[in-house]
Design a protein around this nucleic acid. Structure first.
Lengths: 199, 199
DNA sequence: ATCCACACCAAGCAAGTGCTTGGTAGGGTA
DNA sequence: TACCCTACCAAGCACTTGCTTGGTGTGGAT
């Protein structure tokens, strides 16, 4: 009942969720057993059910918490007064930052969205997907309209290429390695905006 | 023993493998049960073991057969007398063609390479990965050396971006839809080579 | 007519799955 | 002291998993 106890409880929850997120990202949701999570946490599998209703509710909490934060960042960009090109650049940068700071969550979303999306409980995943598409399409449309981007772009395909290439980086990017997420974002924007061909 | 029986046997094998590939691609290898495959094939789960040793040997056959074909195509490109830019374009085109013709196989490789690669039996997956990297790095190096590509490219990052964006298209590309794989390859090469920014 | 290989079925086993149950040690509260 | 709450354990239940076993019907060859 006291504040101290609540905090202790929350910390333990967060700790267990972090361990679960790492396993879900590495091995997949279905392929990670409750016993795996318990072993990695140093407790018995049954004890997890003191903190969580089910394995499903663990991913649920992991994904929804992360997405709330991510889309908050996107909204800030859309609401800003920057020009179209700057907004596009910031959206790419924010995405690579998310990969840097929340790689487990990003990986889980990338790998499990299709499977989990089939359950009613995870219907919000499809909504977030549509929301994400809306963000990028808006940025690209504004870019073309303002003259910052080529007028002959296939917007839909361009959106898919950006989305895919950004998020799939979670498969190889490792924070603390030789590459910073800022550097990766810069290089990617250079390729995306200017191409790789000479002149 | 006769040729006719062999052919019938092989056709049935291929048919069952095709069904299995579709399920593995859609639901994941571990997440697809032997009973799922049997149900989709209209037989009992035990009957699959008349044709195959194990579930593992099914993916094995699916992946190794596909990779043999794909890398044959890459080798043809490397051995050709085309200039560097043409080779790069053809490699991209061949990859999108593979997505068009073997989407299940591509999807399985993309999704399961990490998991399966941990087993000795699938060590060849890591080798193929290295081989693929060698192909792209060669193409990019030649491109820079010949002046077709920008000299300031981060080759390693560029390779990752190309690889990721090409193969991840298997997640949304559907043969027989409004987009042909040739169109997608063209658009992608346009973005990759010239960028999306105006002028 | 007999044989036989092939493709399949019906039943079930051992291991692993998510989750439940009844209980306990320990620290804070009244 | 008596009480309660939190975080955990030990055991196990119902179900699913990959795979095995012994058997059956059928079509072609002899």
């Amino acid at each position: 009942m006291t504040t101290r106890e609540d905090e202790a409880g929350r910390n333990r929850r967060a700790e267990l969720l972090g361990i679960a997120a790492g396993l879900f990202a590495e091995k997949g949701f279905k392929n990670t057993t409750v016993r795996d999570i318990a072993d990695a946490s140093g407790i018995q599998s049954g004890s997890l059910y003191h903190h969580f209703d089910s394995k499903e509710s663990m991913v649920d909490e992991i994904l929804s918490t992360f997405q709330e934060e991510l889309f908050g960042s996107y909204d800030q960009i859309l609401d800003s007064v920057d020009d179209a090109r700057t907004k596009l650049e910031r959206a790419v940068q924010v995405s690579f930052e998310a990969i840097d700071r929340h790689r487990h969550e990003v990986a889980i979303f990338q790998n499990e969205a299709d499977y989990l999306g089939a359950f009613e409980r995870f219907a919000y995943l499809a909504e977030r997907n549509a929301q994400s598409r809306a963000v990028w399409i808006t940025l690209l449309d504004d870019g073309v309209r303002s003259g910052a981007l080529r007028a002959d772009l296939d917007i839909e395909l361009t959106y898919r290429f950006i989305r895919d290439t950004v998020w799939v980086a979670v498969k190889w990017y490792r924070p603390g390695g030789t590459l910073t997420h800022e550097h990766v974002a810069d290089q990617y924007l250079h390729i995306l905006l200017d191409g790789i061909s000479h002149g």
